[in-house]
Design a protein around this nucleic acid. Structure first.
Lengths: 170, 170
DNA sequence: CAGACATGAGTTATCTCATAACATTACGGT
DNA sequence: ACCGTAATGTTATGAGATAACTCATGTCTG
């Protein structure tokens, strides 16, 4: 399977080798656009927090982010990180990964999506899989029992191709 | 919509009014059976922990459980609760609800299922919805990007019928 | 039944994750 | 320049989770 997507328009960019600088730049650009469009402020801490998340496809704990921020002259107390992360999540620029109590940059911001996450337990990378059928199936099941869904969490823990290959000869 | 299920064989028992003592007794019986069948020990702490979870359809935090256990003469330190809860989860007698960092008794143990959870944000009750389509949809999406799923988490936050009704006139 | 081993329960201490509450600073409109 | 609001910063504390060790209990063996 060849790798030729030029950006984060594919669900599983995270696990494939790809031009990550483009990946990052595009997400950051989208964030700037979105901030301008919505009249919200992508302040230095917030922007830097997003950049930090964008450095890898792994999900980072709030304290990992905080450590980085503190080292760069921003505040070094938990609320600094949590507030920036909350802002990003609120505006669809990052997602919270429940399973890991951690945060990952969103690779296709502006879509107002609530994707499924694929979490590799070996390399810790996290990919977003946009799977509308999953969401509609859940919603349907809920309606059947008189439950109205407001937010949903769909996460899968497993192995990505690369890590599965690495583990097999063991 | 009438309520006539005699036990936990329906996905959304939790939100409906039902004969809870039967509900509880059945789950407990299933646990005893399962322990006997698998040759594992449903010790006093473990059994009591399950009973505590079975008292309501809400998910309880480990420390809520611990408080109860401690008050009843069991150990009062976190590992006591976590070990019992881990045991129950391991053997399919309880589930962990990621979104709440909490635990709920399984209402149909022995099925080795990994259900979707419907969490009412008002009354905090948690229902299990067995929705195989969701799981297969997620698995399918994962296969498409070369990811092999080992465990999955599907949780929906929203309002159950009763709470939605109660909130409307507001 | 004694001894050996495995499993479970209890304790202390510590770690990670998260938020409440309040003081201070920067920003945008008039 | 002034004022109100939003954002940042700080201290302190709450909530969730686990490591590491000790002691008790249970069971299998001879």
């Amino acid at each position: 399977m060849s790798v030729e997507n030029h950006a984060a328009d594919d669900a599983a960019t995270a696990f494939a080798s790809h031009d990550h600088s483009t990946c990052r730049a595009q997400a950051l650009q989208a964030a700037d656009d979105l901030a301008a469009a919505q009249g919200v402020r992508l302040t230095p801490v917030r922007r830097r927090t997003l950049e930090i998340l964008l450095e890898t496809h792994r999900a980072l704990g709030a304290y990992e982010v905080l450590e980085r921020l503190g080292a760069e002259g921003f505040g070094s107390q938990p609320p600094v990180a949590y507030r920036a992360l909350d802002f990003l999540v609120q505006h669809g620029l990052a997602h919270r990964v429940q399973r890991l109590n951690a945060f990952a940059a969103c690779l296709s911001p502006g879509h107002d999506h609530a994707p499924a996450f694929l979490i590799c337990r070996a390399c810790n990378k996290v990919a977003e899989a946009d799977a509308p059928e999953i969401r509609s199936a859940l919603r349907a099941a809920a309606v059947g029992v008189g439950f109205s869904v407001e937010r949903m969490t769909v996460e899968a823990l497993g192995l990505c191709d690369a890590c599965a290959a690495a583990e097999r000869p063991e």
